[in-house]
Design a protein around this nucleic acid. Structure first.
Lengths: 123, 123
DNA sequence: TTTGTTACTTACTAAAAGGTTGGTACTTGT
DNA sequence: ACAAGTACCAACCTTTTAGTAAGTAACAAA
């Protein structure tokens, strides 16, 4: 059972443990989640960031979803988690190489959004 | 009530009837939907396409979701719909200028996905 | 008159996503 | 003894999203 092709002989794409037939579906899945793009954006602006700080910066996110999304992105190999053996707990998150490779894509997505800036109506 | 800023005096971004404070959220919302990126991708490959043909090309999509997504993208100003007054019905869809402006972004997303191509394990 | 074609619509259901609340662990400072 | 601080977890509930199945309109061809 070849792992570089699907049954039709087409190449496949792997993100973490998941396999896709289509690169767009991979990307789509990777960023699927209400807060993921914002999380990546925040992570892209600094080397590493503590969980509590990230929660403050991603405005409106619940703890549950922040953790859930971070875990998924960890599994996908986009984010890493560093635990400091201290009390109270200290955990830092940062983008992996693969995660950082998404930054230019995110920038384009952001720039596209910027083109929809509201303008003053003519009086 | 100014429509180019939010209450904090920051600029806002408009997609169709919706307003966002953050360009990433706008983009996120615009492409939110299981099939939207694939639909845009298909539309990007040809000038216009009939509904039935689009359904064939976006493999796995149900009629309901295809229609729903197309309608949303129409409201968002990314897609246009052309109805021919014939029987049986003939409807063609195509990207608007704003829709086409997303193509480079989609290309980057696709290229990012391509970097996850599975490779032969070393034997 | 019945059938076929195409682009839908509607109703119903199942599944997934996300929010809220209330925990826990562990150590330090009081 | 206990309160504080931080990063979680688990249970529960609501909302959203998506899938299925059935039906409709309009005309043309058989």
């Amino acid at each position: 059972m070849k792992e570089t092709e699907n049954n039709a002989g087409n190449p496949v794409y792997n993100l973490g443990a998941r396999t896709f037939d289509c690169p767009i579906e991979l990307t789509s899945t990777a960023i699927n989640g209400k807060w993921k793009l914002l999380i990546i954006y925040r992570l892209s602006l600094q080397q590493q960031i503590r969980f509590g700080q990230l929660k403050k910066e991603v405005k409106g996110v619940s703890e549950k979803m922040l953790i859930q999304h971070l875990k998924e992105m960890e599994k996908d190999g986009l984010v890493e988690r560093k635990v400091y053996p201290v009390v109270p707990p200290k955990v830092e998150y940062y983008l992996t190489e693969a995660g950082r490779s998404f930054i230019p894509v995110l920038d384009m997505m952001r720039n596209w959004g910027l083109t929809f800036t509201a303008v003053e109506p003519k009086t």
